[in-house]
Design a protein around this nucleic acid. Structure first.
Lengths: 345, 345
DNA sequence: ATTAGCACTCGTTAAAAGTGAGTGCTAACA
DNA sequence: TGTTAGCACTCACTTTTAACGAGTGCTAAT
């Protein structure tokens, strides 16, 4: 167990290092107002903290920096949930002053806001399809067998795909089929949609003896890779990485930026967050080599209890956890409120 | 005017420097098979070339590197339009083996291909709306006054917007209006669309005395910022920048990557290319400070004579112009062919 | 006109020396 | 017994110096 003085020192070291990016020495600490004891005492305490694995020194004659364990302890026990200042709260509210109708523009906007707020890079994992339910389906036949299919989910997410059929689909046939599909399929979870849709088309065909097998085949193909398709990941404030002193070296910067550009890898990384809490992972806790010098703050967003995606903040291990956590919590609220407005149930 | 020998030497210097990124010395050159004269002779010629401003030395005791003027001369006069090898040609054809229905996926794919082909970063300016004509318009009323509007252009570009009306639009009203709009508006250039659409809705309203003013207002707003909206810019191979020795320094890398992330700035940069040629800009010719150490190869793409957007390749001034130009020319062909397939006229 | 030879330049690398922030330990002190 | 002053020691960082060598420009011989 740590004494109060050790807690004070540890917190001071982490705070200072977060601010300056320089190893913190005993003399520096002793000059602080809230430190009443001498540098020698601090050195003794530091030795103890180091023995416990909470801090470490880059080399013999340097000050101390927090270890990963130290950051972990800091995050778990030493952060004060500083409420944001009134003017910030106000600013936050006005951020979403005009509602944004389209969910994906809203997400993009949110990613930018969060990165502006924190000066870190933001990742937003777009709504995953699985949990969502169909609200409306529209088939738009164009010339030459081209058909646009528009799919609207209950969360208000709209997307379109283009099919290419071997022969044209008449507007009437499309319209009849569509009406039928919307009647029977509204509310179907997207994860089931492909099977249900094919089934329904087959039934429709037999009932009306209409030639829709081409459509059925084309739809199948499109929905097939629809299924494999992963939610988009929106990035905000990529350039913020350049400001971090730890990433002034291209060798350090490169893997992080490269990872961030890879939708696939990021998806795997952002997806599996189980509980609804704010999740913080520090350095090696990320289990991704490229992020071994980074910390990530993640938060789930959901609407009406349906978990949709993830809001994440990425920065150096020496990131301002306090500010990051607070910003993400508050923005999460506002974001979810906006999303709620766009949903159709 | 340059002598043949000077041309040989200049080409050799540029070729060598492009390959190695190291200043080229007279001794190195004299060892080449195609160089029959001594290093001293080369030094004399180099002195002349330097006086003409075609090459320069980083410092007194270094070899020569091409100046911007030198690159310009090289690009204008010394590049041999090496046709690509048969296996490359074959590979290029198979790249688009499966047609991609959606234009924006096609564009994304193309950007990736081009960067893979060249190992440089690729920028693709998506189709600009102005020149395009309306093919089809669809209004999809959803619950609670939400209406999705789907817009298909003759080039096969599909996009959707969401409107929020104060009161619901009936499916019947939407259907009637839509039929009318499609009859009268097909072929309208998107640049006119907003005005024509409003006009048409007004006329429709007076004829049918239907309450569509809300719709009209909402549509106006959406189309208004549709007009301001700029084509997306697709990027490929951003990570390739990291491989260039000239960008190993964060200070050099940062402005380039930052610029690339800024849609606005890039748009201004990529847009004004007047003729249908391949355009190469070197260093300061880019008129953009962030690109003062970069060269850009740009090519227009168009379908049926309608210029749609720009395909661009960005790399260090020391980029492999030969390969870059050839790749972009050949990919441009294939890309346009695919685009053509997707168009609906 | 071409080339061999040579003194000279200057960036690069390596080694050497000096600097200073910070530490650990010890002994004195409250 | 906990705290502090003092001091020797460590080691990254900076500066200095020296050696190195690729490359140049000039000159004189071919």
């Amino acid at each position: 167990m740590l004494t109060d003085r050790q807690l004070l020192i540890l917190r001071a070291i982490v705070d200072d290092y977060i601010k300056t990016a320089q190893p913190v020495g005993s003399r520096t600490l002793s000059k602080r107002d809230d430190v009443t004891f001498s540098s020698a005492t601090i050195r003794n305490e530091m030795a103890d903290l180091e023995e416990m694995g909470l801090i470490e020194k880059p080399h013999t004659s340097a000050g101390r920096i927090p270890s990963e364990l130290g950051y972990r302890f800091y995050v778990d026990h030493l952060i004060r949930p500083e409420s944001i200042s009134p003017q910030e709260a106000k600013a936050l509210k006005s951020l979403f002053a005009h509602s944004v109708n389209e969910n994906d523009r809203l997400i993009r906007h949110t990613a930018d806001l969060l990165s502006e707020l924190t000066h870190y890079t933001t990742l937003v994992l777009g709504p995953k399809e699985e949990g969502q339910r169909l609200h409306h389906l529209e088939l738009i036949p164009l010339a030459e067998g081209r058909v646009v299919i528009v799919l609207v989910t209950e969360t208000g997410h709209v997307e379109h795909k283009t099919l290419q059929l071997a022969e044209a689909l008449s507007r009437e046939a499309a319209s009849r089929l569509m009406e039928r599909l919307n009647q029977t399929l509204r509310g179907t979870p997207l994860s089931n949609l492909r099977l249900r849709l094919l089934e329904e088309i087959r039934r429709f065909r037999s009932e009306h003896s209409e030639q829709t097998s081409l459509l059925s085949k084309a739809l199948d193909i499109v929905l097939m890779d629809q299924q494999d398709e992963r939610p988009l990941i929106y990035l905000g404030g990529k350039a913020n990485m350049f400001d971090q002193p730890e990433f002034q070296d291209v060798a350090k910067l490169r893997p992080v930026l490269e990872l961030i550009e890879q939708q696939e890898a990021l998806f795997d990384f952002l997806s599996p967050n189980l509980d609804n809490q704010i999740l913080i992972t520090i350095g090696s806790e990320n289990n991704v080599d490229a992020l071994k010098d980074c910390s990530v703050i993640r938060a789930h967003y959901s609407v009406d209890g349906v978990s949709l995606g993830t809001l994440a903040l990425i920065g150096p291990k020496r990131m301002d956890y306090n500010r990051g956590i607070n910003s993400i919590i508050h923005l999460l609220q506002a974001f979810q409120t906006e999303l709620r407005k766009n949903s159709l149930d």
